[in-house]
């Protein structure tokens, strides 16, 4: 997947985030959001290892070994940032104090529930904060490529990979378009530039309703 596609998905997902909202960004495409110039100063980024107010990446000669994000990458602290322990960090998450979690997904079912933690063909030895975020954030936005690296639809009638939570997500942003999860069904809100409804339908294995089908 090209870096440009990832940036395009990230840029579109940023529009789903409320100004001055508290946002947790999962690994993968979600973290690209933090690198967008237009994201700078627009949102407060929470990282579950214990910081609210993640700033831009430091230059290599200014890396602080005690300052990392949940992906263990070096970060800086924005003005007004706060540090806290893991228990308080997850109280923020489970307690509904995080406005939006932006997460990746391996699969999404017809009701908007996702598989986001167990990687196919590998022993299940890592979950991290994926389930807590999915369960506790006030709103969950998924960013992902519409098709898997094998070219298979990721939006499927039933999950075949392990589910992350019984709670459905709220919005799905892919390189093919934007879907809302509303009343337990998927509703197409927007087609990505250059994607026709026919092509979107071919790439989506689960049933969905069509809301507004115009390209932006």
């Amino acid at each position: 997947m090209s870096a440009e596609i990832r940036r395009r998905i990230a840029r579109r997902a940023l529009e789903e985030l409320p100004a001055a909202g508290v946002v947790n960004l999962g690994v993968g495409i979600p973290t690209v959001i933090a690198t967008l110039p237009e994201a700078c100063g627009r949102i407060f980024i929470h990282s579950e290892n214990g910081i609210l107010g993640v700033g831009p990446r430091p230059p290599e000669d200014a890396v602080d070994p005690t300052l990392v994000d949940a992906g263990k990458r070096p970060i800086t602290a924005s003005p007004g940032a706060a540090y806290f322990d893991s228990a308080l960090s997850f109280a923020m998450i489970r307690g509904g104090h995080i406005d939006v979690a932006v997460l990746g997904a391996l699969q999404i079912d017809a009701r908007g529930r996702i598989a986001n933690w167990a990687i196919p063909g590998q022993p299940i030895l890592g979950v991290g904060g994926a389930m807590d975020l999915l369960c506790g954030a006030r709103r969950v936005v998924v960013t992902m490529t519409h098709l898997s690296s094998a070219g298979e639809p990721k939006i499927v009638p039933e999950l075949t990979l392990p589910i992350g939570s019984l709670r459905p997500v709220d919005v799905i942003v892919s390189d093919y378009g934007v879907l809302d999860v509303s009343g337990g069904v998927l509703v197409l809100r927007e087609l990505a530039p250059g994607i026709t409804l026919e092509r979107f339908t071919e790439a989506t294995a689960a049933l969905f309703k069509v809301g507004v089908s115009t390209n932006r």
Binding site: S89, F90, A91, I93, R94, L125, V127, D132
Partner: peptide, 12 residues
């Protein structure tokens, strides 16, 4: 394996 928030809350 425990979800990270469950692990830290179990310790708390």
């Amino acid at each position: 394996l425990l979800p990270q928030g469950t692990m830290t809350e179990a310790i708390r």
